[in-house]
Design a protein around this nucleic acid. Structure first.
Length: 426
RNA sequence: GGAUAGAUGGCCGAGUGGUCGAAGGCGCACGAUUGGAAAUCGUGUGUACCCCUAAAGGGUACCGUGAGUUCGAAUCUCACUCUAUCCGCCA
């Protein structure tokens, strides 16, 4: 959510800036007009309230003769007040809804463009693999190594689910353990969080009202399944009054994640790339309201994720996401994409975002600054690692001619010292 | 699932129909005192919004949430949410 005062004072700039995200300028005008209408009504209903209060207060000291007339007058003013209030709350509801749909403004130096075609590759890191044999895709590798139960689990749990076993199951957990250790070494608090959430946190995060189709909902309990630990961590400190001294707060959140993938019909239907349920270790930062500070943390989060991919010895590229592709909450977004040999392209493994104060305003995530003022925090989030998707580039890049998969040195301690996994591994 | 108790400011806590935005304490800020500190004393200290502003000022709302009673609600009524404790069940 943006600051309405900021919008009103900078209408043209806001139109231009949100326009980069495809947000129509007319909606900014409509919002501003609604705000003015609302204030006008507020002013008139407040003076009615004032009159009503004055009358009420005078009743106690009034004489018995005066009293009935004052009560009658007060009743009348009360009726008028009530009518104005009803109009006002309608207008307020409209205004609040518009505010919730207003995206964050993107950074001035984010690339501009309508969709992912305008994303900019800012660098590529690591050598692409050269195979002196015909490489297999991850599905084939899972089959020959007895690593999965993909057909059977589809019968039990439906499409876009996965069951992996043996060394691959161990690998999935080992990668998370490795990432959690790295995050702890960087000062993050490891925290495991629920995969279920009430509705309000979804608005806080900025997932609602934008993407209801993407979220699993359980009506019997009026509860939602979380698509990411970011959802939970963003609201964990909601409505508290933090102090500047306790910032930044760094969370490494681990949770199952659920996504309906409603808009992805036909995409990545086979294998581990896009599934309804997965595990993610998430990086989440709450810092003070200072763009230099949050940009610093944004870079830091990116660096940590790059190190993760480097430790996993995966070739990757860093994408600077353009204004049209970055989504409503974001001020600046980097994506990391790891090389997937069978698809001959890079696929997203990490998404690193600076949300500035947009999320904190919705969440009422505040702190008392050293100068005594209350400010909204800045929040940032980035994937630590998400599996099973990360396993796809992993086993494809590290595959050997005999179908085994090499384990990079940094990961070996988490795999019981194994250097290779697979049926033919010794 | 059953039964009780509770929800008030940055924190603790008083307040059962009217000058209550809310006593008192803690914390915090500033000042006095001090060679400096502690202790002590004094003063100040909520959030959001509206009007008016050069500044000051005035007003409205907010005591878990929502509705209701009343001229008037932190206080009374109803519903809901959440928290704590006990019992039951349970990975």
């Amino acid at each position: 959510m943006l600051d309405i005062k900021f919008i009103v004072d900078n209408v043209d700039w806001v139109k231009k800036s949100l326009g980069k995200k495809g947000f129509p300028a007319e909606k900014v005008d409509e919002l501003v007009q609604t705000f003015y209408d609302m204030n006008k009504l507020k002013t008139s209903s407040q003076s009615l309230a004032e009159e009503k209060n004055k009358l009420s207060n005078s009743i106690k000291s009034a004489s018995n003769e005066e009293r009935p007339a004052i009560i009658a007058k007060s009743k009348e003013v009360g009726e008028q007040f009530k009518a104005e209030q009803e109009k006002l709350s309608e207008l307020e509801a409209k205004f609040n809804d518009m505010m919730l749909r207003m995206p964050n403004y993107p950074s001035e130096d984010s690339p501009e463009g309508p969709d992912d075609s305008a994303n900019v590759v800012s660098r590529k890191v690591g050598e692409l693999p050269h195979f002196d044999f015909t490489p297999r895709d991850h599905i084939e590798l899972m089959e020959i190594n007895d690593w999965s139960e993909m057909e059977r689990i589809a019968k039990v749990s439906g499409s876009r689910t996965y069951a992996i076993k043996n060394d691959l199951a161990q690998l999935e957990l080992a990668i998370h353990m490795m990432v959690m250790d790295k995050l702890r070494a960087n000062g993050f608090t490891l925290i495991t969080v629920p995969a279920i959430s009430k509705e309000k946190p979804l608005y806080n995060q900025g997932y609602l009202p934008f993407a209801r189709d993407e979220i699993y909902y359980m009506p019997a309990d009026d509860i939602y399944l979380s698509g990411t630990a970011e959802l939970i961590l963003n609201s964990l400190r909601a409505d508290e009054m933090l102090t500047e001294a306790e910032l930044p707060i760094l969370y490494a959140g681990f949770s199952p994640c659920f996504r309906r993938e409603a808009g992805a019909a036909g995409k990545d239907t086979r294998g581990l790339v896009r599934v309804h349920q997965f595990f993610k270790t998430e990086q989440f930062v709450i810092c003070k309201n200072d763009i230099e500070e949050s940009e610093k943390w944004h870079k830091k989060l990116l660096q940590i994720s790059e190190e993760v991919l480097q430790d996993l010895e995966l070739p990757y590229q860093v994408l600077e996401v353009c204004t049209g592709d970055m989504g409503a909450p974001k001020y600046r977004q980097y994506d990391l994409e790891a090389w997937v040999p069978s698809q001959n392209c890079y696929r997203e493994t990490h998404s690193c975002s600076n949300i500035t104060e947009w999320q904190a305003r919705r969440t009422n995530l505040r702190y008392r600054a050293n100068d005594g003022k209350v400010r909204f925090c800045h929040t940032l989030n980035n994937t630590g690692i998400a599996t099973p998707r990360a396993l796809v580039p992993f086993i494809e890049n590290h595959q050997q001619a005999d179908g085994t998969v090499r384990i990079p040195a940094k990961l070996q301690p988490y795999m019981g010292g194994k250097k290779f996994i697979g049926k033919n591994a010794k």
